[in-house]
Computed example of a mutant assay.
Amino acid sequence: MTRARLVRTVIRHSRREPVRHLFAYRSYSWLVDLDEMPTPGWLLRPFAGFAARDHLGDPSASVRANVVDYLAGQGIDLRGGQILMLANARVFGYVFNPLTVFWCHDDTGALRCVIAEVHNTYGERHRYLVSPEANPVVAKQFYVSPFNPVAGRYRLRLPVPEDRLQLAIALEEPDGRTTFEATVRGLVLPATRRTVARAILAHPFETWRIAARIRWQGLRLWRRGLPVVPRDRRLSQEALS
């Protein structure tokens, strides 16, 4: 199974206004070195698929090659350093990754940058290039929730996971109000056959369930009267470029 790791997570979302809405659920994600992608046996293979087409870049290249190519366009050369990826795997051919995180190190082991790749339910993707400082801030540039405009900024906490994963994202409106927060926390475990099997038994068809859960929460907000913000298709096309 290589040195891949599994993260048993608890994901929490908190919307403060104009409608207060909170939910939390348990899940799991994979933490992998892009030079050592998981190679599960035939029994677990349907639950642990990874493909370049699931992320931005050339679908015929490797995930690592696409990340390196993107960074080169930003003037960053890792010189062969390690890239760690936190993502969901394909389960029976389907995957949905609301957030994929890449921790990009250079050949000395220093963290050069972090990439936060966001996917929405419209099949669109966008990358945020994040500095390695402790609490970076990036301008919001991508349509995610149908109830939020593309405005404001994200405050991020994306430390490199060791034995625990602790991610946090807060959306600040242009006037400084924090209206939405999300956290992903969990225990990092070796991806042994036993660990993977237990995660699959606890959360079968998990990536299908993640997509369904997001749509269900959106429906709940819509029924409570939260207005939908029209999607700017021009921004969507720019996000995909």
Rank of each mutant, 00 (worst) to 15 (best):
30 W>H: 08
56 L>H: 13
17 E>C: 07
83 I>F: 07
69 D>Y: 00
133 E>I: 06
9 T>Q: 15
208 W>M: 04
16 R>T: 08
184 V>G: 11
155 R>M: 03
36 E>P: 00
25 Y>S: 02
192 T>A: 12
93 G>R: 04
233 R>I: 02
220 R>L: 13
233 R>S: 07
175 D>I: 06
152 G>F: 14
66 N>F: 09
49 G>P: 01
56 L>K: 15
73 G>T: 05
205 F>G: 13
22 L>I: 15
76 I>V: 13
163 D>H: 11
174 P>R: 04
41 G>I: 02
90 R>V: 00
17 E>N: 10
175 D>S: 07
30 W>K: 01
216 W>P: 03
28 Y>Q: 04
151 A>K: 07
72 A>F: 02
231 R>L: 10
88 N>S: 09
93 G>D: 03
157 R>W: 15
210 I>N: 12
10 V>Q: 09
167 L>K: 00
95 V>T: 14
124 E>A: 14
237 Q>L: 04
78 L>V: 04
66 N>M: 05
65 A>G: 04
167 L>R: 02
53 R>Y: 04
127 R>Y: 08
115 I>Q: 02
147 F>W: 07
216 W>S: 10
7 V>L: 06
194 R>F: 15
60 S>E: 12
27 S>P: 00
181 E>G: 08
10 V>M: 08
55 H>S: 12
196 V>Q: 02
110 A>C: 11
41 G>C: 14
25 Y>G: 10
215 R>Y: 13
241 S>Q: 15
178 T>P: 01
90 R>F: 00
61 A>I: 01
188 V>P: 09
139 A>C: 11
170 A>N: 05
58 D>K: 09
212 A>T: 11
68 V>W: 00
227 P>C: 09
7 V>E: 00
222 W>H: 12
32 V>E: 11
145 S>F: 03
60 S>Q: 12
151 A>W: 04
105 H>G: 06
80 G>C: 08
238 E>P: 11
199 A>P: 06
169 I>A: 12
195 T>C: 12
54 D>R: 00
47 F>T: 03
212 A>Y: 04
218 G>Q: 13
6 L>S: 10
217 Q>Y: 04
119 H>I: 02
229 V>G: 04
77 D>L: 01
206 E>A: 12
146 P>L: 03
152 G>R: 15
130 V>E: 06
182 A>H: 05
228 V>H: 02
80 G>R: 06
111 L>E: 14
220 R>I: 14
233 R>D: 13
119 H>F: 05
38 P>R: 03
212 A>P: 00
196 V>D: 00
68 V>L: 11
147 F>K: 06
206 E>I: 06
30 W>M: 15
